[in-house]
Design a protein around this nucleic acid. Structure first.
Lengths: 243, 243
DNA sequence: TTGACAAGTGTACCGCGTACACCTACCGTT
DNA sequence: AACGGTAGGTGTACGCGGTACACTTGTCAA
């Protein structure tokens, strides 16, 4: 009968499996619903068992981020820095979109793990290899910020107005009235929202092309970097120019 | 004796006072340590009493953000859009720096309150008033993202390496050895970190000029916006150009 | 056979947000 | 003067979260 139990028993856990399960679970239920207890349950194990493989939840999250970094393509070679950076960022973005929890996870991390440092190291390398000064590279990395991970501060993703309660319970034509009110109180927002509804559909929350928005900002920055690089920008000079 | 009790009793709470106390508490103890229970304690009241003035913690945070927005200067008038936007953003940044919890609070909010919508409305207005098309304004607002609140994704603020444990317990000259290791594993990071230590001090975590980094990226974006605006950029054209 | 060690368990603690029933002082009305 | 509603504050309790600590159990080397 111990035999049976042994047969039933899964192959023992290990850090790898815990991390994989955590990623899967977060993919399914979202970042905020990922708990040690829930993860343990998913693995058919008691919560405290996890602590034999990760020190605490922080470390679990660090591990998840590391695994995410593993999904980002290495930089391509034999092109200019701009394409290299661009492709890498877009690869990061793809990884991020496969794992909706990743943005929150990255933002929640404070201490940099080796995996993160490695990624940043390699990222800086793309600029330096492109002939950027260490100085410019430094500031450029700051400027690109979260976009180096493939995300933007999304301040728009919700199409909900201030009075968004019921998800599908909106009276069909009452929407027009609300739209009316919106247009009065928020003319500019309505303008920029509908101004881009090229297909004529004038719903407020028509949702915009995230990918386009992302690339718009990314290219704006890359073009700016290029210009500074070409004109031999240095922070010392910039600071002198300021006065 | 009931007299005495009445005399002792504070003036009754109200939403205002709750919000003010919450802001103060968060200023002191940080975003993650702000709890309903702690706030209640601070107000000399039982936790559930707060729920007579705010519906739940979400609403409390919304209120805090609203109060923060109240600290941002209104847009200046009679200048070009660029200065107007720039000054406003820098004002937002100042507000944010007075309240270290604000970044996390803003990022944590999903539904937009009236206060937030008002701010965004007015923000969009600065571009539109400057002659920007609704189209360009839309994308520009996306691009500026969190910077419109005065913050950047800070991916650097920690100067800690991967082995940062004890805060002050670092053997004095062992730091040099660690530096050595750093330089081997992370040559690029070390280069861009020390490359900007203009004063010759080569400490890794010398900390950089946050304000400068912020303005660097902000101006890069504003210059980019200006260029696009001048050349009559439209998203339709941009999409056509892409192919 | 032993005994060390790694993996998993069970119990427990504290902090969190908040539902719900209750109390109590104050108010305008009758 | 008596009354009932109401706003503000209370007390108790629940479920969930992370995780400390002491324990069993299964495995393998000596």
């Amino acid at each position: 009968m111990t035999q049976q139990l042994e047969a039933t028993r899964r192959t023992p856990l290990n850090r790898e499996r815990v991390l994989r399960a955590a990623v899967e679970l977060a993919d399914d239920v979202g970042f905020e619903s990922l708990s040690m207890r829930r993860l343990a349950e998913e693995l058919g194990v008691v919560p405290m068992a996890l602590y034999k493989h990760v020190a605490n939840k922080e470390e679990l999250l660090d591990g998840m981020v590391a695994s995410l970094i593993g999904e980002i393509d290495p930089p391509v070679t034999h092109t200019d820095w701009k394409s290299t950076v661009r492709l890498r960022v877009l690869s990061a973005r793809r990884a991020l979109q496969r794992h909706p929890w990743a943005r929150q996870a990255i933002e929640s991390r404070t201490t940099k793990t080796a995996a993160v440092l490695d990624y940043m190291e390699s990222f800086a390398g793309m600029f330096l290899a492109g002939g950027f000064s260490a100085d410019l590279t430094h500031h450029v990395m700051h400027a690109i910020g979260g976009r180096m991970w493939g995300f933007t501060q999304e301040l728009f993703d919700d199409q909900s107005g201030p009075t968004a309660e019921s998800p599908a319970e909106v009276p069909p034509e009452a929407q027009a009235a609300m739209m009316q009110q919106m247009a009065e109180r928020y003319p500019n927002i309505v303008a920029i929202a509908t101004g881009t509804a090229h297909d004529g559909s004038s719903v407020v929350g028509h949702g915009c092309d995230d990918q386009f928005e992302f690339e718009f900002a990314l290219d704006l920055l890359l073009d700016g970097f290029e210009r500074l690089h070409e004109q031999g920008w240095s922070s010392r000079q910039a600071k002198l120019d300021r006065r």
